[in-house]
Structures are given as C-alpha cells and as structure tokens.
Simulated assay, not measured.
Amino acid sequence: MELDRLLHVTVVYAPHARQAREHLIEVKSGSTVAQCLSASGSLTGMTADDLLQLRVGVWGRKCSLAHIVRDGDRVELYRALRVDPKVARRERFNRQGAKAAGLFATRRAGAKAGY
C-alpha cells in the first residue's frame, strides 16, 4: 500500500553559529513537518521562548508545521536573527571606512573616481 511506505527525511537545525545538527529519520507517508520534528528529537532541550521564535522550512522555503513531507525532503529549523543584516553591513562599512570598502577600494594610482 502507498500509505504504509516509509519516507526518508532529513531534519537540520543549527543551534549556534558553525554548529549543525542533522538527523536522518524515517516517517510514514503522509507525515507532517511537526511529526518529523518530534520524531527527530530536535526540539528537546528548547525553552518555550525558543519554540515560539523558530520558523520551519523545506529545502529553504518557509512552510507551516502542517505541511506534508515527501521522500527525500530536508526539513530545516530557522532560528531568529540576532542582528538585522542591514544594520550589520552598515556597521562593518563604518568600521572599515569609505576608502577601504566597496567596489572601487583598490584602484590604480591617478585613475578617475569610479573607474
């Protein structure tokens, strides 16, 4: 029967920078993302606040916990960003200075600006 078929799903979570936890699990056909997360054990040790901030996706696309997984799917847990990427870029630019950053930071001596 098609309903009794086992699907191979990968659940990935990075609790901290440069740390990735990957769980290869088998679930029944018709399982949801929530069922995959509970079967993988990725949610153990998380506080209620952590669970509220988590977002999920399949292959890099956000989805709901009720999304039905397919064979070979990669379920990903996304944690909240600590710093807004625009703010971080602006701060990096201010630290480096205008002459040391950007597309034209290294230009030939005597060259016109922007070339």
Results as ranks from 00 to 15, higher is better:
Gly102Leu: 10
Ala88Met: 13
Arg107Ser: 09
Arg21Gln: 15
Asn94Lys: 15
Leu81Val: 05
Ala39Asn: 12
Pro15Gly: 03
Gly60Ser: 12
Gly41Arg: 06
Ala113Gly: 01
Leu54Tyr: 14
Glu26Ala: 11
Arg92Ile: 01
Val58Ala: 07
Val75Leu: 06
Ser42Trp: 07
Ala101Tyr: 12
Asp4Lys: 13
His16Gln: 12
Gly114Glu: 02
Cys63Leu: 11
Glu26Gln: 15
Arg74Ser: 04
Arg107Tyr: 06
His67Tyr: 13
Gly60Ala: 04
Gly30Ala: 09
Gly72Ala: 00
Gly110His: 10
Val69Arg: 02
Ala34Asp: 14
Pro15Gln: 04
Gln96Met: 14
Arg108Gly: 05
Ala66Leu: 12
Gly97Ala: 07
Cys63Val: 14
Leu24Cys: 01
Ala113Gln: 11
Met46Ser: 13
Arg79Val: 02
Ser42Asn: 13
Arg108Val: 08
Ala66Phe: 04
Lys99Met: 11
Ile68Phe: 13
Lys99Asn: 11
Asp84Val: 01
Gly72Leu: 00
Ser31Trp: 01
Phe93Ser: 10
Leu54Asp: 07
Arg92Phe: 01
Ala88Thr: 09
Ala111Val: 05
Thr106Phe: 14
Ala20Ser: 08
Leu81Ala: 08
Arg18Tyr: 12
Ser42Leu: 15
Thr106Glu: 14
Leu37Glu: 05
Met1Asp: 08
Ala39Glu: 15
Ser29Phe: 15
Leu103Ile: 11
Phe104Ala: 01
Arg108Ala: 14
Lys99Trp: 12
Val87Met: 09
Arg82Thr: 12
Ala80Asp: 10
Arg95Thr: 03
Ser38Thr: 07
Arg92Pro: 00
Lys62Glu: 04
Val11Ala: 09
Leu7Val: 02
Leu65Arg: 04
His16Tyr: 13
Val69Leu: 01
Ala109Gly: 03
Cys63Glu: 04
Leu54Ile: 15
Ser64Ala: 13
Ser64Arg: 12
Thr10Lys: 11
Arg61Thr: 03
Asp84Phe: 03
His23Gly: 00
Gln19Cys: 09
His67Pro: 00
Val27His: 03
His8Ser: 15
Pro85Ala: 08
Ala17Leu: 11
Gln35Asp: 10
Lys86Leu: 08
Leu6Ile: 01
Ala101Gly: 04
Lys28Ser: 11
Thr10Gln: 10
Lys62Asp: 02
Tyr115Met: 08
Arg108Phe: 07
Ala17Met: 10
Ala100Gly: 00
Arg5Ala: 15
Gly97Asn: 09
Ala88Asn: 07
Thr47Arg: 10
Gly57Ala: 05
Ile25His: 02
Ser40Trp: 04
Leu3Gln: 15
Ala111His: 08
Lys112Cys: 08
Glu26Ser: 12
Ala100His: 13
Cys63His: 07
Lys62Ala: 04
Asp50Val: 02
Val83Glu: 13
Phe104Glu: 00
Val27Arg: 02
Cys36Arg: 01
Arg55Tyr: 00
Val58Ile: 15
Thr106Asp: 12
Val56Ser: 02
Trp59Ile: 05
Leu52Tyr: 03
Tyr78Trp: 10
Leu6Thr: 01
Tyr13Lys: 05
Ser40Pro: 00
Asp49Leu: 08
Val12Ile: 14
Leu103His: 09
Gly102Val: 08
Asp50Phe: 03
Asn94Glu: 13
Gly60Ile: 06
Leu43Ser: 01
Gly30Lys: 09
